[in-house]
Design a protein around this nucleic acid. Sequence first.
DNA 1: GCTGTAATACTATGGTATTAGTAGGTCGTG
DNA 2: CACGACCTACTAATACCATAGTATTACAGC
Lengths: 130, 130
Amino acid sequence: MGEVVFTDRELDIMAVLWEHGPSTVASVRDRISIDLAYTTVLTILRTLEEKGHIGHEAEGRAYRYHSLVERGEARVSAVDRITRKLFAGSTETLLSHLVSDQDLSDEELQRMRALLNARLGDDDEGEEGA
Amino acid sequence: MGEVVFTDRELDIMAVLWEHGPSTVASVRDRISIDLAYTTVLTILRTLEEKGHIGHEAEGRAYRYHSLVERGEARVSAVDRITRKLFAGSTETLLSHLVSDQDLSDEELQRMRALLNARLGDDDEGEEGA
DNA sequence: GCTGTAATACTATGGTATTAGTAGGTCGTG
DNA sequence: CACGACCTACTAATACCATAGTATTACAGC
């Protein structure tokens, strides 16, 4: 269970692969927000591949890169990390921060509550006694 | 609004300063989880000071370092960042992840709901119609 | 006043991140 | 076949991170 950690730039690129699926260098480059040289994108992709986070297959003369890491895994790692380091290990404190300091609209907050209600209601209707 | 970003090790040390208040090198060193040489801790503190994130004042022959950055600021930065990069910019998706994938107990979930209820109840009692 | 201890200041080293240039291959088209 | 467009491979430079050793200073106690 090796903590999946990405650098800033790596994360930019992983985000593209997760969002748009397997992509060539050129299409990754087109889709990231910041402007990088073609070779720079390629280098980061090669680094990611070296680390085992992504793979590729030939497509014509180009490569198409695909993620080997579930986005969910990266999410758990990242959330764990900031929970530990910034919220003293408390997910509740994190949520409290989300609802009070993160500048959300009432509608968003209501949808969040709906999510929680659904989760608590659906999952285990009877055993909320403990 | 300059994104407050810390490296891993810096964050370890900031966590101590936030948690325990102004601290000397020795007390920081005692409180961080990982084992680092005294001089290593000092070096990181000096780096943090150079970057303007902390300050110090003399206390006897030692220095007592204190944070100049609100933990809340760092929290916002960190949460923004992972929301953007890992949750496609959606705080709701982040919450959804928290409640479904982050392995929380029912009690925690219930306390979270209570938080949301309090927030929504307090803030705007009437408009929960939507 | 000397010596030990604890603190900071300075210096160093190996590693990773970030960015990108250049060289060389391949394929389509005139 | 030669040329250009596009692609990957190799190489590189700069900055920053992580860790810590050595030098030096300053006070406390004998």
